[in-house]
């Protein structure tokens, strides 16, 4: 089982959200912005994915397409909580510790338990 959150940013691009999860060069302990703001545990590369309609201009970027991009099965009702009209970028993050669910840049929905990622146990 994994604990994940899905979410969106109304104002940050996918590049900016990806940077949000990366180590912050201005932080003394190299914590990411996400760790600093949301009080999460360490987020490793591969523990999150960020998508933007701008990255998929040839596709209709809606709830079902977002569902297709995610590497795990999730009820469409969970995805419908996201306001696609205001989302500039969308993401999921795997984390077991989150202190807040929203700031000016990101809004999270969860925690959501998933059984497995689709790429697990593939050899």
């Amino acid at each position: 089982m994994h604990t994940i959150y899905i979410g969106y940013s109304p104002n940050l691009s996918s590049d900016e959200v990806i940077q949000y999860f990366d180590v912050d060069p201005n932080h003394d302990e190299s914590f990411s912005k996400f760790e600093q703001e949301f009080g999460s545990n360490y987020i490793a590369p591969g523990d999150f994915e960020v998508y933007s309609p701008q990255d998929y201009k040839d596709f209709e970027f809606n709830e079902s397409f977002f569902q297709k991009l995610l590497p795990f099965k999730i009820d469409i009702l969970e995805i419908k909580k996201i306001d696609f009209m205001v989302a500039k970028s969308l993401f999921f993050v795997k984390s077991i510790e989150i202190e807040i669910l929203e700031n000016d840049d990101l809004k999270l929905y969860g925690p959501i338990k998933i059984r497995r990622f689709e790429y697990e146990n593939i050899d």
Binding site: F48, E49, V50
Partner: peptide
């Protein structure tokens, strides 16, 4: 390769890619 969709580091497929590289 699992979906045929374009992706990138931190974007679509990033979890699968890091998993595959790790293995």
């Amino acid at each position: 390769p699992n979906t045929g969709l374009p992706g990138r580091h931190g974007g679509h497929g990033s979890g699968a890619f890091h998993n595959e590289l790790g293995r």
